[in-house]
Write a protein that binds this DNA or RNA. Structure first.
Length: 597
RNA sequence: GCGCCCAUAGCUCAAUUGGAUAGAGCGUUGGUCUACGGAACCAAAGGUUGCAGGUUCAACUCCUGCUGGGCGCGCCA
């Protein structure tokens, strides 16, 4: 993939296919917001604050930056806006910009420009999304999965949101390192070891290892008189007792194979799975260094770091000498800095850990200089219909496996009802994509920080901002190509000119619905940037939903197959590009498309 | 006690970080079916953004104080 190198060239004219100089997969487009922002900022000398217009009657984009500057420099905002407008030369891009309201500058893109941009995007296998000129190295940390315990609903948001952000950043051309920070060390292993030795049922281990390990854990945990024995097993493990180490490794092995099943179903992969145990040997060194530097001090026998803004310290070593998860987090960060030199580290956990990460980050800022951008990307709780954290009827956490099973079962029931004639294997494949997709989409389409109520009916609905709706929208576009009587329809251009529209024709935007669709297509780049800037996957789902809406209007108003050339080819290309962006967008959410449903 | 988060249409949620007339879906009401998948589309109704002040050209957004929820906080993770 060619990387954008410095300046990009815009082709302001249309109507001649020779106007473009795109070779192969070269991705050299500049997004609309970049063009407009750059122009305004050159004239203004300050951020343009370019946004899509709140109301389409004002135009396509608006610059809000003038008013801020006017305020600072005590000028009349409208006068300043007029002055800025007079200095812009964007004749090839938009109609003459207008000044409105308190000092907004409004831009309406020219149809010819939009046509040229989408034509270029249609010939680019990145749909016009540039590759980052300055790639960042980003570490994504997924917290919370514990060895010997089932993955439950509390893990799904971290996994799905982290995976989405990793995918988006990767697509933008950044170097992303995903690291599953599993809980494979801690006091629970004393009880597990004791339970394993005394009460293990090998048949149960074979049938469902995690369930059996959980049973053993609960068994020992309930019996207070065994605490001392469990503790003794833990100490032996910590001292490197070969037998206990071997059993402990068995726990991890059993657990990881179970985790992998879930991650495979979710389509999530990690570059590294470095658990807490990996950092265990480093902990004494971390404490020693922090003490030596005077960052950590002793208080009531524990080693603490006091951080501004919080009365409670971050304890990094207990009075009995044991380390805590804050210690591990600091060791982990140090390792990552040494190993990968990231520009950014993203921690995806639930909101209850805000104080913890605030403290860890504060300590890290004292410890390391320079320090990468540390971001706690936190999320809210998944609630049941009653508004309380989602649990089973018996009050247990819902196992992720059960959740995914139910999602697929419910989706399969719908497919069976709607399309019984499809082969069974096809129906199951559709059910997998729709069921898993629905769960993911429901999660990602929420504003990350708010709690949300989990509802099967809503996430599987065919209307509204849901996975099935988006997947269906994709199928409808694909259906056009099937109907157009061409062969391959899954990837751009494979069906030859007749399938994707003859690329010798440029895309023509004659109908308002075509223009609307094309403008929405051009917003893909800026949407991904917004998602990455603020770690907000729901902006991508909102974009895709809007895209589907614009496509619907186009679909209703603009016949494709029956149109005469060059309209037919133009519209086929527009359909192709829409489908490609839907597919790409869903892929960045970690959701599969299907060709029929 | 200190701290964090939340409160938006009947319900479930948005709102690009201070921008113009607060948007969707469900539900309700009414439309569209011989063009490409009706698992669809279009339209209407529905709001004092919890309350009261404040900041300014502009506030769902920021500040202060309330009310009502959720969560966290020295030896779990």
């Amino acid at each position: 993939m060619a990387r954008v190198s410095g300046k990009t060239r815009l082709s302001p004219t249309v109507g001649h296919s020779t106007s473009y100089c795109y070779s192969g997969s070269m991705s050299a487009m500049q997004s609309v917001t970049e063009i407009l922002s750059a122009a305004v900022e050159r004239a203004l000398g300050a951020p343009a604050l370019l946004r899509p217009c709140a109301n389409p009657q004002f135009g396509d984009y608006q610059a809000n930056g003038v008013m801020a500057v006017a305020k600072q420099t005590k000028q009349n905002p409208r006068t300043l806006a007029e002055k800025i407008v007079s200095q812009l030369s964007l004749d090839n891009v938009c109609e003459p910009p207008t000044v409105a309201g308190a000092g907004f500058i409004n831009f309406t893109l020219r149809g010819e420009f939009v046509g040229a941009q989408v034509t270029a995007a249609a010939r680019d296998d990145r749909h016009g999304v540039p590759v980052a000129m300055k790639p960042k190295t980003v570490v994504v940390d997924y917290c919370g999965v514990n060895v010997a315990k089932p993955m439950h609903i509390g893990h799904i948001r971290s996994t799905i949101i982290g995976d989405c952000l990793a995918r988006v950043l990767r697509f933008q051309g950044h170097r992303v390192i995903t690291d599953n920070h599993i809980g494979d060390w801690g006091t629970q292993f004393g009880m597990l070891l004791l339970g394993w030795k005394r009460n293990r049922n090998d048949d149960a281990i074979h049938a469902d290892p995690i369930a059996e390990l959980l049973r053993l854990y609960k068994l020992i945990n309930e019996r207070e008189e065994l605490r001392a024995e469990a503790k003794a097993e833990l100490v032996k493990l910590q001292q490197g007792d070969p037998e206990n180490l071997a059993i402990w490794r068995k726990f991890i092995e059993l657990s990881e194979s179970e985790f992998t099943k879930i991650y495979d179903r979710l389509g999530v992969r990690f570059d590294h799975t470095l658990g807490e145990s990996f950092y265990n040997p480093m902990l004494p060194g971390v404490v020693a260094e922090l003490r030596q530097r005077g960052i950590a001090t002793e208080s009531d026998g524990a080693i603490c770091v006091f951080v501004a803004g919080s009365k409670a310290p971050l304890i990094i070593q207990k009075a009995d000498g044991a380390f805590l998860y804050g210690t591990t987090d600091l060791a982990t960060l140090k390792y990552r800095l040494d190993q990968w030199h990231p520009d950014e580290v993203i921690y995806v956990t639930d909101g209850r850990q805000q104080l913890h990460f605030q403290q860890v980050f504060a300590v890290a800022r004292q410890w390391f200089q320079p320090i990468p951008d540390l971001r706690h990307v936190w999320f809210g709780t998944i609630l049941g219909e009653d508004g309380k954290p989602l649990k089973t009827r018996s009050g247990d956490l819902i196992k992720l496996e059960d959740l995914l099973n139910e999602a697929e079962e419910r989706a399969l029931a719908v497919v069976n009802a709607k399309n019984p004639e499809l082969p069974e294997e096809t129906r199951k494949q559709i059910a997998r994509a729709v069921g898993i997709g629905a769960v993911k989409y429901a999660d990602l389409s929420q504003s990350r920080t708010t709690d949300y109520i989990f509802s099967w009916d809503k996430m599987l609905a065919m209307n509204g901002n849901t996975a099935p709706y988006m997947q269906y929208a994709y199928v409808r576009v694909q259906s056009i190509f099937r109907k157009a009587d061409v062969g391959r329809v899954t990837s751009r251009g494979d069906g030859g000119p007749a399938a994707s529209g003859d690329a010798a024709y440029n895309i023509i935007l004659a109908h308002p619905s075509e223009l609307d669709l094309a403008k929405q297509i051009l917003r893909f780049t800026e949407t991904l940037q917004a998602v990455a800037d603020d770690d907000k996957p729901n902006w991508l789902t909102a974009y895709l939903y809007d895209l589907a809406g614009k496509f619907s209007a186009f679909y209703d108003n603009c016949p494709v197959i029956q149109s005469a050339e060059p309209t037919r080819s133009s519209r086929l290309q527009l359909c192709r590009l829409t489908a490609d962006i839907m597919k790409r967008g869903l892929n960045l959410l970690g959701i599969d498309v299907i060709e029929q449903m």
